[in-house]
């Protein structure tokens, strides 16, 4: 039996909690399209976690994942996944690729980490001949990344920060309003970011009747459509985000339902995190003790 290992080619840290991994997987780099995701497992005891494919390089044969360390698995990933290392399991590309429509004017919105997965879509729209307005939002200027890279595929670029430390002082929805006010006709808005941001984007565009696509991030297990853990309500129907999505019409998504289901394992997530932090502390203490002993 072949147990593949998936080598990590390079790693870039954006901030204390966010980092980027380039992983060698030529077949996937060839197959991946904007909007798709992978499922990653760190080791045999690990869980299967979905991560959006932020970028892919067909020549180098790599795919790019951008990760925010928020819980046990992503923290472990931050600690363990270094260039030269490898990942135990990675499967994809999963989900239906984003539809790059014939929109003439499109706003691509990325909030926080969502900037990474919206980037290949902005690029694809640009390549398809659309007028692309990029709107990216961060809490603060020191969390910004990919600014130049993103700008290069946009006709207009609006940076929003919650604290006003860079660009527009405000949320991405303020950026969207600004762009709508300037252009009048916008054919489509594509938004990726935290669920609360995607809902806000959908509510901003609803009165303007602008088609708004969002990329949903429910809890997943297999990612192949066999468990229904990722089911979401869209237009009052059950959809499985892993095979029917992850992109859906933001005006038809039941976001309240998504929010409550995302909290399903909050207690267990906390427990796993505490246990992991504990074992890390013990490990550090043991390392320190060993170092001291070595010094004697």
């Amino acid at each position: 039996m072949v147990t593949s290992r998936f080598p990590i080619v390079s790693r870039t840290d954006f901030s204390e909690t966010t980092f980027l991994l380039d992983i060698l997987h030529p077949t996937m780099a060839r197959a991946a399209k904007p909007g798709q995701f992978v499922i990653v497992m760190l080791d045999e005891h690990g869980e299967r976690i979905p991560l959006t494919i932020a970028d892919f390089d067909r020549d180098k044969g790599t795919i790019t994942l951008v990760v925010q360390a928020v819980g046990k698995s992503s923290r472990q990933m931050q600690a363990d996944c270094q260039a030269g290392g490898a990942i135990y399991a990675i499967v994809g590309p999963m989900g239906i690729p984003s539809e790059i429509s014939n929109a003439k004017t499109v706003i691509c919105v990325g909030g926080g980490l969502g900037v990474a997965p919206i980037y290949p879509q902005a690029r694809a729209f640009k390549e398809a001949g659309a007028y692309v307005i990029g709107v990216v939002g961060f809490r603060s200027a020191n969390l910004m990344f990919w600014e130049e890279k993103f700008k290069a595929v946009c006709d207009e670029f609006i940076v929003c920060t919650d604290d006003g430390s860079a660009g527009l002082h405000g949320l991405v929805t303020d950026g969207i309003e600004q762009a709508i006010a300037k252009h009048g006709t916008i054919d489509e808005v594509v938004a990726i970011g935290p669920p609360i941001m995607m809902r806000a984007c959908a509510e901003t565009t609803r009165p303007h009747k602008i088609k708004t696509m969002v990329s949903l991030n429910p809890i997943m297990v297999d990612g192949t459509g066999m468990c229904g853990g990722c089911r979401v309500r869209v237009n009052a129907q059950i959809k499985f985000a892993c095979v029917d999505g992850p992109d859906f019409d933001g005006h038809q998504v039941d976001f309240d339902d998504l929010f409550s289901r995302l909290h399903r394992y909050r207690a267990e997530e906390k427990q796993a995190m505490e246990r992991y932090s504990d074992s890390c502390r013990r490990l550090i203490a043991a390392d320190a003790a060993a170092a001291q002993e070595g010094g004697k």
């Binding site: 039996m1 593949s4 197959a31 798709q36 399991a89 990675i90 590309p93 999963m94």
Partner: peptide
């Protein structure tokens, strides 16, 4: 030969 982590249709 068994190759895991391969989603036929998408990969």
């Amino acid at each position: 030969e068994i190759i895991c982590n391969t989603l036929v249709g998408r990969l």
